[in-house]
């Protein structure tokens, strides 16, 4: 089904500009009353010491992580939906994020990270990979939506329970209180260390996922047609599994589980690119970055006792969206 596609360049540029604007807003909005110009100068170490510290040491890593985490989640969602040919596929719903959180929790609370900081994202990526492989095995491609969601629910709750168990067994007596971070995500008070820990994995994962474009396009015509067009399904599967695991693992390791981004973003953007997965991928990365940046500004602006968690906002938007999507696709579920 070919539909007339609007010019892709314009949309991409529009979203890139949007991400740039949200990035800037994320830098200049915050509890400290520092005007935009001082923040900009502070980024280059040219303002007063307080503004330098707030701009470069606190807000810059937060905004960078917003872009990285959002892009990683948007891209993973688009790739999973394309590969599984299932509009409900998403790292959060499928339990990939929760499994990544399990890996990160083990690395952080049991001292592995203290010996070797990279263990945090590495363990998270391994967790995400395990979940991706389990889902592959259990649901497979072309599984009914119901099967896929049920497998996701099972993997998700299993990993979630293990996260809670690990936190309760952790040596630190306050560990169990931190479960909200792992369930709902947050970018509060992250530093450049977190950016450097996540960046290589997200960049590598995004690279792998962006390579899937042509294969996903062919796959949208059906697996047989894709193979007849010379698509190596085994290679495509590996790209999707490893790419998603690296993206989601890197994100969850530093930001916790931020739900629904990978579900909502590709859906909203798909009509803009004429339902072509190859063009949806980069646009979903931009859209994801935009949504997470906006949500992260939102948690700073909504007055609350202590800062809200990021997943609270994405969930408030995402869960009704998910229900709406279920209603729309209900006939296919049976």
């Amino acid at each position: 089904m070919r539909v007339k596609t609007p010019p892709i360049g314009g949309v991409t540029v529009l979203f890139a500009v949007g991400v740039g604007a949200a990035f800037f807003a994320s830098l200049v909005i915050g509890p400290a009353d520092i005007d935009a110009w001082r923040i900009v100068k502070g980024l280059f170490g040219a303002a007063d010491e307080t503004a330098n510290l707030v701009a470069a040491g606190i807000r810059l890593p937060r905004a960078l992580l917003g872009v990285m985490v959002g892009a990683a989640l948007g891209l993973s969602g688009a790739a999973l939906q394309g590969f599984l040919r299932n509009p409900l596929a998403e790292p959060g719903l499928l339990g990939v994020s929760a499994s990544a959180a399990l890996g990160a929790v083990i690395a952080l609370y049991f001292g592995v990270m203290a010996l070797f900081p990279l263990a945090l994202p590495v363990f998270a990526v391994l967790g995400a990979m395990a979940a991706a492989l389990v889902i592959q095995g259990l649901a497979g491609r072309d599984a009914s939506m119901l099967t896929l969601i049920l497998v996701g629910v099972a993997v998700s709750s299993f990993a979630g329970s293990l996260v809670a168990l690990a936190l309760n067994l952790a040596p630190n007596p306050h560990a169990a209180l931190e479960i909200a971070f792992w369930l709902l995500g947050s970018l509060t008070d992250r530093s450049m260390l977190h950016v450097w820990l996540a960046l290589p994995f997200i960049v590598a994962g995004a690279g792998l996922l962006l390579m899937t474009g042509r294969g996903l396009d062919a796959l949208s015509l059906g697996e047989k047609s894709a193979q007849s067009m010379g698509v190596d399904m085994g290679r495509l599967r590996m790209l999707v599994v490893f790419g998603t695991a690296a993206c989601v693992g890197g994100s969850v390791a530093v930001a916790g589980v931020v739900g629904f981004v990978g579900l909502v973003v590709p859906h909203l953007l798909r009509p803009l690119v004429g339902h072509e997965p190859a063009r949806l991928l980069p646009l979903s990365a931009l859209g994801g970055a935009l949504i997470v940046l906006i949500a992260d500004i939102g948690v700073r602006l909504i007055p609350s006792q202590g800062e809200l968690k990021l997943g609270v906002l994405t969930g408030i938007v995402g869960a009704p969206f998910f229900l709406g999507l279920l209603l729309k696709t209900r006939s296919e579920m049976r």
Binding site: L108, G111, A170, P171, N172, A175, E178, S191
Partner: peptide, 19 residues
Amino acid sequence: DAGPSLGRQILFHPALRQM
């Protein structure tokens, strides 16, 4: 203290050292 935690990372935030 008894073991690492997410919340404790804040006490190692580079901004504190710079302050």
